[in-house]
Design a protein around this nucleic acid. Sequence first.
DNA 1: CATAATGTAAAACGATCGTTTTACATTGCA
DNA 2: TGCAATGTAAAACGATCGTTTTACATTATG
Lengths: 174, 174
Amino acid sequence: MDMTNKLTAAAERLFDRHGYMATGMDRLTAAAGMSSRTLYKHAGSKAQLMARVLTERDRRFMARLEVQSVDALFAALEDWVRVEGTRGCLFLRSRAETGGDTPEIAEAVAMHKAAFHLRIEEVVAVDLGRQDPVLAEQVLVLLEGATQAAVYRGADAVSAARAAAAILMERART
Amino acid sequence: MDMTNKLTAAAERLFDRHGYMATGMDRLTAAAGMSSRTLYKHAGSKAQLMARVLTERDRRFMARLEVQSVDALFAALEDWVRVEGTRGCLFLRSRAETGGDTPEIAEAVAMHKAAFHLRIEEVVAVDLGRQDPVLAEQVLVLLEGATQAAVYRGADAVSAARAAAAILMERART
DNA sequence: CATAATGTAAAACGATCGTTTTACATTGCA
DNA sequence: TGCAATGTAAAACGATCGTTTTACATTATG
């Protein structure tokens, strides 16, 4: 594992656990096991590092959403929550922490959320046999809500969302 | 309007707009129009100020949820989003920003989310004529999801959630 | 063998952090 | 009239912020 990946992985863990603003560069260098000189050679700046973390997270998260049914979207989210834990959406969190005023971060978040929305519309269309933007919006709300509610309600929130989506899909199908 | 209220209102606005960690005390004193000495007399500390902001916000938000139907919950959220804007849930945001390690904040968030969950269970019970914890969890997920999704999807997210809740309620009623 | 690349360790940069203190003005009430 | 309360303005506290720099070690390749 090269230094850039080690740094990105350590940064994702710390930013997710403690927040972007609350995580200092000294903590980052200690966790990544490198000097600050090396860190800045690979990261450029703290904001660029966060952007890289988000891009990498988008890659990993979206790979899990390569499915063919709405139910599988929620199964994927259940897996994600079990593996990665439940601290809310890191994309929206990091944008909110910076007030949307850090361009690298705002752009990475916009990219991810656009891809996320598009993917849901695609999966709904495949599952339903036709496009249904309103239903897709409801599925998106359920996925966001499950992610958010799982922080304090636990895995029950995700399975409740999954069951709700099944009802909405069934109704749209008949 | 006394100084404590003026301070709390200014703090809520800044914390919500720029984030808790990113908002410095000098910005707070400037926005509240008072010296740092007076600020600390009234606030105690930054963390206590955030806790007061959250307690006040909980009071204002929960007052809007004193309704008798699930649909009215979503109507209330639509009003809230229109009046207060859409920057996500300030409670979960401030807890995430501090990693859950600031007791005053973590407690205020826990208080609010417990009350929020309880209120939803009550409204579902009144609307449905019986208790239904799973349906209540689904309504909670839809409310959280609408709040979160509205940040980047706008008001459509809230109306989509509202329609989804109506379908779930209708199905539970028959 | 020389050299370019890549790394560490640590000091230093100026800026800003949350908080306290010093010194003084204004006001309300006994 | 005098004192306690409440406020402002501003300097200062030590700590920490993100970032750069200086000085030196290691390694891979021509």
